[in-house]
Design a protein around this nucleic acid. Structure first.
Length: 358
DNA sequence: TCTGGGGTCCTAGGACCC
DNA sequence: TCTGGGGTCCTAGGACCC
């Protein structure tokens, strides 16, 4: 049996990243429930970005309204999001990964990345990564080891915190088979519910499901994809091709709903300007602008319209105002614009990483 | 309870053409 | 008058992730 070096996918995920960075600059917060979100004011409309493990023990998690989180943990320290600082810390982490021998690094977000390696002993390599990151940034991380991207990504969860876990074809069904499909990366609440209507509740059910049933329910691409997901299969090559943004968007949820046409006009102008500034920084032509509006009550459907294919922001503003005048006369809670940009030819031809390795 | 902001990709269905 | 079957392109909307 061959026991030499093999290709592995590692998934590196920082432990409570944002909270950990905050604790680094305020060591007196160590061991306390720390919640980072919005402007740090729990009376505002905002959500939790990250909660420290101490806060999570009270049932606080990412995406939870800040107001609710504050109610669950009355003595929590609530801090505003400081994106610049996290970005800087993230760069240090990624630089430290790229220094590892033979590492191919695919960044997934502020606090996680895939690392492709060819090694005999991936566990030792993973431990070396943890030491290197800790030394350079004083931050702890967990590492998932897998034979596919999906398995590595899922493995990390079993390693948290500060651990290493290996998930391959060999132990996938033993470890994952009995868990609900919702535990899979890419299965959310809606899909998990639709799977249930097909009689599929566990990962093992999904792995053995009839592809035709899945295609009928989810379409020609997603159907087979979900079945693969149930088996932990899929891509196994880490791709470090630089990522090229497809577009940029700016949106704001207003603390007080916009009630008058004047307010709407002002905010529309502000957002359009911000989107165009982002796009100008990229230096690529705009191929579409989408307007997004959310009314009160919040359950109302989002209203999106493609309104222009133009570089001319006055024309965009005009179209937006025209549309907003026509739509129902209700308070606006959220406004947003998204600009789609043409892709550079070299990015179109090459395999630009998509959906974090899908 | 009352829900941010930044992204990506997929599907359904209409318009249009042959 | 009633209307096929296939293809492409586009938009709106949905779902998911960090």
């Amino acid at each position: 049996m061959y026991t030499g070096p093999k290709a592995w996918v590692l998934h590196v995920d920082l432990d409570q990243f944002i909270a950990a960075v905050e604790i680094l600059r305020r060591p007196e917060l160590a061991g306390k429930p720390v919640i980072v979100g919005g402007r740090g004011d729990p009376t505002e409309r905002a959500v939790v970005s990250t909660a420290s493990y101490e806060a999570r023990a009270f049932g606080v998690g990412s995406g939870m309204p800040l107001r609710i989180a504050a109610r669950k943990v009355p003595d929590a320290v609530i801090l505003p999001v400081d994106a610049e600082t996290y970005t800087a810390a993230s760069h240090e982490v990624m630089a430290s990964l790229r220094e590892q021998p033979g590492a191919v690094v695919q960044v997934l977000g502020w606090d996680e990345a895939f690392v492709g390696i060819v090694e005999e002993d991936p566990e030792s390599y993973a431990r070396a990564i943890q030491r290197a990151i800790l030394e350079r940034t004083q931050l702890h991380c967990s590492v998932g080891i897998g034979d596919t991207l999906v398995r590595a990504k899922v493995a990390t969860g079993f390693g948290k915190p500060r651990g290493v876990f290996r998930l391959t074809a060999e132990n996938w069904s033993e470890v994952m088979g009995g868990l609900p499909t919702r535990e899979l990366w890419g299965v959310g609440p809606k899909v998990s519910r639709r799977l249930t209507t097909l009689g599929i509740t566990s990962v093992s059910d999904l792995a053995h499901a009839d592809v035709q049933d899945l295609v009928t329910e989810f379409g020609p691409k997603m159907g087979p994809w979900y079945q693969q997901l149930g088996r932990g299969e899929g891509a196994s090559v880490v791709d470090d091709t630089p990522w090229v943004a497809r577009g940029h968007s700016r949106e704001t949820t207003y603390q007080l709903d916009l009630m008058t046409p004047t307010e709407v006009a002002e905010q529309t102008r502000e957002l359009v300007n911000r989107v165009f500034e982002d796009v100008a920084a990229e230096g690529r032509p705009v191929i579409g602008i989408t307007l997004k509006v959310r009314y009160v009550p919040f359950t109302t459907k989002v209203f999106t319209r493609k309104i222009a294919e133009t570089q001319d922001r006055e024309a965009v503003l005009e179209r937006a105002m025209e549309l907003l005048k026509k739509v129902e006369d209700r308070p606006i809670r959220l406004l947003g614009f998204r600009a789609e940009m043409s892709m550079p030819a070299e990015a179109r031809e090459g395999h630009t990483p998509t959906r974090s390795g899908w």
